[in-house]
């Protein structure tokens, strides 16, 4: 298995008055393809900041990121988000005035990756795969439960035919049963479809089922 994402000497901090707080300190790490990672750490340790940098939503102060050997600066953050990765958020972040299907189609429309011409059928298939029936797929997302919305968010994350999925507290708003179903979904994506999952979580349940657990502490990553 090759490296899908490489972090090299990443630094990030912010100034609070006269005091400069360093969140990430010369952080380096390599994520392997087809692996389900969970990043753990105490509150305020910089987990979400790290995920934002890795997902191309924010920029590090120094250091470099490489996706499959290519520097993110060369790819461009917008193109990176569009074609290389998918993101699942704690609060699902679906577009409220679209149906589940339309949320998936939005991601499919935006990607430059090659997709089959029958995108609608593919979108239904993806939704079925994450446990959303066709009838629910055509409903407005605001009319669905939290678990159903998170499933749709996962389907949207992979809709662009990407290999790397980031998840920020993906089960934070869900009950225990639903949490288990979401974990199973991540496992399936990793094991059966070779996707790399990097999830930031507080949940022991999520981390217990991941392939690799990493602790973020004092601005650096350490394998557990």
């Amino acid at each position: 298995m090759g490296t899908i994402l490489k972090l090299e000497d990443i630094c990030y901090g912010y100034t609070d008055g006269n005091y400069k707080r360093e969140i990430l300190k010369h952080l380096s790490y390599e994520f392997e393809e087809g692996t389900f990672y969970t990043i753990l750490g105490p509150s305020g340790s910089g987990k979400t900041t790290l995920l934002s940098i890795m997902a191309g939503l924010d920029k590090q102060e120094s250091g470099s990121l490489y996706f499959q050997g290519e520097n993110l600066n060369d790819i461009g953050l917008n193109r990176y988000r569009r074609n290389k990765i998918g993101v699942v958020f704690q609060s699902y972040n679906l577009i409220s005035y679209l149906t589940g299907l339309e949320n998936i189609l939005t991601a499919m429309t935006e990607t430059d990756n090659p997709l089959p011409s029958n995108r609608k059928e593919l979108a239904y298939a993806l939704l079925n795969m994450v446990g959303i029936a066709d009838t629910k797929a055509d409903r407005m997302v605001t009319h669905l439960s939290g678990g159903e919305q998170q499933r749709i968010a996962i389907a949207r994350a992979i809709a662009g035919n990407v290999d790397l999925i980031f998840a920020d507290e993906p089960t934070g708003n869900l009950d225990t049963d639903t949490e288990k179903e979401i974990i199973r979904l991540f496992q399936m994506l990793s094991e059966q479809y070779g996707k790399t999952i990097i999830a930031v979580t507080h949940s022991n349940e999520v981390s217990r089922f991941s392939d690799h657990r990493i602790l973020l502490r004092n601005g650096v990553l350490n394998d557990l």
């Binding site: 997902a55 939503l57 917008n78 193109r79 990176y80 988000r81 569009r82 074609n83 998918g86 993101v87 958020f89 972040n93 679906l94 577009i95 409220s96 005035y97 939005t106 991601a107 935006e110 990607t111 949207r156 662009g160």
Partner: peptide, 10 residues
């Protein structure tokens, strides 16, 4: 909504 769209690369 704009944040979501930007996050998926729009």
């Amino acid at each position: 909504e704009i944040g979501v769209l930007l996050s998926i690369g729009v």
